[in-house]
Design a protein around this nucleic acid. Sequence first.
DNA 1: ATGATTTGACCGTT
DNA 2: AACGGTCAAATCAT
Length: 314
Amino acid sequence: MGSVSPWPERLSSNKTRVIQQLIHGQECATQLQILFHKSFEEGARLSAQELVQKILRSFNETLSVLSCCDSAEISQNQATSNDDSPCCDDRRSEDSSESRKRPASKDRRGCYKRKRSALTWTLVSTTMEDGHAWRKYGQKEILNSKHPRSYFRCTRKYDQGCRATKQVQRMEDDSQMYQTTYIGTHTCRDSFKAPQIIKDSESWESYMVTSGDSETPSKQQHHHLNPPTTPTVKQETKEETTPSDLTDLDSIKWKDIMSGGFEYSSEPVGMGSDYGDGVCNVYSTKITSRNFKLDFENDFHFDESEFVYESSLL
DNA sequence: ATGATTTGACCGTT
DNA sequence: AACGGTCAAATCAT
């Protein structure tokens, strides 16, 4: 089974309530941010937005701390139980000369397992840069899409076992924009650095979140995400700074998921046909924001009975 | 020489 | 069978 119950029932309930309140505060800050964005002239807008960002970051980090048990356990469970890793996946080493030879027989047959049980979320941006080092491993023409979809995995996949991947595709109607679907969280520690004060508001204004592939981008709203902090560099930092919970994912997921009204649903989300069914250890939880999509699957543990957020709260 | 990207084939899901 | 995600040999870039 591998079902984990990270929080005793009462704790879990309290935690959920705390999260609700934080979410509410975060929601307000986000709306304030949007308001600032619309209504101030340049100078005032920047400082107001910096302020809002600080508020949002504070919410975000608190929420991240609260949720770190979940994500940490996701990481740990998946890392140790191999429940989502193909039998031949991580054991293959790239620099092994063995692996570069054609495997003579069809060794790969049956080895490949489509990864599903991962947290996914989608955003739209003018850039593909996100501060992480990615390596492209594929590109595919997608039916009814003008532009191919590119597939990236974390460069630390093999040396640190990081399972984060992303898919990038140009928007249909705005080729300047990239729709990026992130799958899985970074368990590596590389390029993430504490976000700096943003001087160039464009760096984060350019990020938008969207609610779905069929949505028109016209009603997308601007949202704050962590800006690309460092260029995509590889580095071998070993020092332990923070636990792995404060990844970019965390900084994105809470603030963006809660930026609009959201609903708890069992409908599949994702781009195109996706990882909808998610029949995994616990159950599949999907939260759909107006502006943002996020899948919690597998062990991301919320008690269904408690995880009912009324829209009146927001 | 080493690492990244390209690209056709393979494979799971629907 | 079609589609899309992944693999890995070939190729390119540094």
